Amino acid sequence: MRRDDRDDPFDDIFREIERMMDEMMDGTNGFEGDQSGFSTDTHVDVHETDDEVRVIADLPGVEKEDISVQCDGEQVTISASSDLREYDERIGLPGPVDPRSGAASYNNGILEVTFERTGESTNIDVE
């Protein structure tokens, strides 16, 4: 990421940005944590139908016992760990779900969590 170093009033700024980018990449050519199973490719997809919301997360290299899933009806928090890394992500759901209806499966590094949609909303009294 070298640029032409002619007399430029912004040279110091660009050098600092380059330094920070190099530090962020940590010499791994843009792929962080490739030996642990967690990388920049770790991602979460959310699929919805009229009846349910399904969250699918790629968690390669993680044992089933090291995964924790929590839901408050509006967000799902997925936490997982391997010997080298920890993964913690909060995912906003596209609509309210019944957190007690959650069912999860984990197979070949893929976590799938399904929730039933709920149309219920809570009335809050203003005092």
Rank of each mutant, 00 (worst) to 15 (best):
Y87Q: 06
E23D: 15
A103T: 12
L93H: 05
V126A: 06
I91T: 13
D4M: 10
T122I: 11
D51H: 11
D5F: 09
S68Y: 02
D5T: 14
N123E: 12
P96W: 00
D34M: 06
D58K: 03
A57K: 01
P96H: 00
G37Y: 04
M1Y: 12
R100N: 09
V113I: 13
M21T: 12
F31V: 14
E116V: 02
G102T: 02
M24Y: 15
K64L: 03
V126R: 13
I91Y: 04
S121V: 12
D83F: 05
R100F: 01
E86T: 07
V113L: 13
S81M: 05
I91R: 07
D45S: 15
G102N: 06
L93F: 02
V46S: 11
S81K: 08
S121E: 13
G73K: 07
V46W: 06
D88A: 10
S121Q: 11
G61L: 03
G119P: 00
A103V: 12
T77W: 02
E63R: 11
G92W: 06
F115G: 02
N108H: 10
E65I: 05
E116F: 02
I17Y: 12
D4V: 12
M24S: 14
D34F: 07
A104S: 14
D7V: 15
D12V: 09
G95C: 04
D45W: 11
M21R: 15
R19D: 12
R117P: 03
L111N: 03
E116I: 00
V113F: 10
D98N: 11
D4T: 06
E23L: 14
L111P: 00
P60H: 05
S82T: 15
N123P: 01
T114I: 13
G92D: 10
T77L: 08
I124N: 09
D41Y: 10
D4C: 10
G109A: 01
M1K: 10
E127H: 11
V53P: 04
E116R: 09
F38P: 00
E52S: 12
Q70M: 06
A104E: 10
M24D: 09
Q75C: 11
F14Q: 08
D66C: 07
S36E: 09
R2P: 04
E16L: 14
D8Y: 10
E16A: 15
I56P: 00
L111Y: 03
M20V: 15
S121W: 11
P94R: 01
G102C: 05
Y87T: 07
R117E: 00
M24V: 14
T77G: 02
F115M: 08
E65R: 14
S81A: 12
G119W: 03
S82Y: 02
D11S: 14
G27V: 06
T40I: 12
Y106F: 15
N123K: 10
M1D: 14
P96S: 01
R117M: 00
R117C: 05
V62G: 01
D34P: 12
V55L: 11
D98S: 08
E18A: 15
E16N: 14
E23P: 00
E112K: 08
R6N: 08
R15C: 04
D8N: 15
F14Y: 14
I78Y: 04
E48S: 13
